[in-house]
């Protein structure tokens, strides 16, 4: 049982590592595209347009982008891990209570138990 759990944990960790690597590759490829600058707040709020030609950023967006995606994935993975642990604990408690009740019921039904 604990061996299966260890295997499951290793598989989960490997999947997370592959996913992180995929995100890293995608972000790196996005960095290859050049950045532009300047415009009014209304322009930024009402329309998103594709960049044309090479430009430069004043506030580097890369670290902000990486931080945002890290938050998204760490939060979701953290929650999934918590959910898995909660499910395991509840299933274990339920099995314990069920077996205790079954045992107690069998003893109560046994002849001469009254």
């Amino acid at each position: 049982m604990s061996q299966r759990r260890a295997v499951r944990q290793i598989v989960s960790a490997a999947s997370a590592a592959v996913l992180m690597a995929a995100i890293f590759v995608c972000v790196a490829s996005a960095f290859a595209q050049e950045q532009p600058a300047g415009a009014t707040a209304d322009d930024r709020a009402q329309a998103f347009q594709a960049v044309t030609g090479a430009t430069k950023e004043d506030v580097p967006g890369g670290p902000l982008l990486i931080a945002a995606y890290a938050v998204v994935w760490l939060s979701v993975f953290g929650y999934v891990l918590r959910l898995g642990r909660l499910h395991g604990d509840v299933a274990q408690s339920l099995a314990r209570v069920e077996s205790a009740v079954t045992r107690a019921s069998a003893q109560a039904r046994a002849p001469g138990s009254e």
């Binding site: 996005a30 430009t55 967006g61 945002a68």
Partner: peptide, 17 residues
């Protein structure tokens, strides 16, 4: 998001958030 969608003209790469 990272390969097909272009970088945004005004905000740059951070718009991919």
């Amino acid at each position: 998001i990272f390969v097909v969608a272009p970088v945004e003209k005004q905000m740059g790469i951070v718009q991919k958030i």
